[in-house]
Design a protein around this nucleic acid. Structure first.
Lengths: 207, 207
DNA sequence: GTCTATACGCGGATAGAC
DNA sequence: GTCTATCCGCGTATAGAC
């Protein structure tokens, strides 16, 4: 559930609370009164820190998404064999999606409701680097494949799997271990690493 | 963009409009005035057809999700070899996600905002059958694998890939064909069919 | 089945005191 | 930097005529 950085200025308290509120109820579902309440101040005080609701929302995204990706490079870059680095990446992303509900939900909401500017921010500031690094791995594993698309398959698979959780838990055959990021990461890695061999030699030949 | 059935009763006109509105802006983002406007009636008239906003929302879900899955069985059941049936299923789901924006967005929103009842409805009335059929295919392709989880990987992959579209289109290496359900389906099928061979003989052995 | 009229609380936002 | 007080339009919802 952890989101953003540490300092306990009023501004940061507000942002920490809004991250949770916006993640749970969405932009339109949260009022400035709700936020003020959660932060322990009055609505009027909010406007001392942020011009209006939409600026507060944007600040919340910057706060919530900031520096989440920082531990990734050490996993992906390095001397280890590609399979190991890839598996490490998958595990990292599975853990993020499974553990940080706020983060995962905000991502989902931005995909649905983000305007051009916010999607640009998300693309550039949040996904650009991890995505590039994933593409590099894809090129190494499946040199003749479409690195962009294959990387998106990986992101999509993990993102989608956990986004489906609410109904997945009610579905035939569900067991609690299906929520366990360690297990999911293992099986995703296995499926993808094996599957990518189909793209190692030639582009979309099978059908 | 097509949603739901045909008859042009007022009730159906309302539901058709609300499906679009709720899909685009979410429950809290749409007012009864908006809906009345779109349907060409006054807000008061809405309450002749639906008790309140939340009943209207539930009716919209039932309308939007109703009978979308009907053409699936003929694809999945049949005499064709399993690879072909699986590919057919993947193509069907890719087309649904890529073509029917309303449907895809409502699904995403329900994952985020659905209460217990609505998630139960989604699970039972929308996903139960297609999911079961996918599990059957998984058991045939990867007898020793975890059919529930592998099926969810497939749903998650396709769902997640298209849910990512807004930022995917801004990402390094994007080309328009990455939005083409036919191409995506081909490559997803190839990746998964090949990857599943890793699960054909034993459960999660590789790592 | 749809209208006009209306109730009334909640929404975002501001003024100005402390 | 936070408060109290307040503005005003929009939110859901209803009453009752046609």
């Amino acid at each position: 559930m952890s989101v953003g950085s540490a300092q306990t200025t009023t501004r940061n308290i507000i942002l920490r609370e809004t991250a949770t509120l916006f993640a749970m109820d969405g932009y339109a579902g949260v009022s400035m009164r709700d936020i003020a309440n959660a932060a322990g101040i009055t609505p009027a005080a909010l406007y001392h820190h942020f011009r209006d609701k939409s600026e507060l929302y944007r600040a919340t995204m910057a706060y919530a998404f900031g520096s989440k990706m920082s531990d990734l490079p050490s996993i992906v870059l390095g001397e280890a064999p590609i399979e190991e680095r890839f598996t490490g990446f998958v595990l990292w992303f599975c853990r993020l999606m499974a553990t940080d509900v706020i983060y995962a939900r905000l991502m989902q909401r931005e995909m649905l409701d983000g305007d051009d500017d916010r999607l640009y921010f998300l693309t550039e500031e949040v996904f650009r680097e991890p995505f590039k690094q994933t593409m590099v791995m894809m090129e190494e594993i499946a040199p003749k494949g479409d690195a962009h698309q294959l990387s998106m398959f990986v992101f999509g698979l993990i993102f989608g799997y956990f986004a489906f959780s609410p109904t997945r838990r009610l579905q035939t055959g569900f067991r609690p271990e299906h929520d366990d990021p360690e297990k999911v990461a293992r099986d995703v890695s296995q499926l993808v690493l094996h599957g990518l061999k189909a793209f190692a030699g030639m582009e979309a030949a099978a059908q």
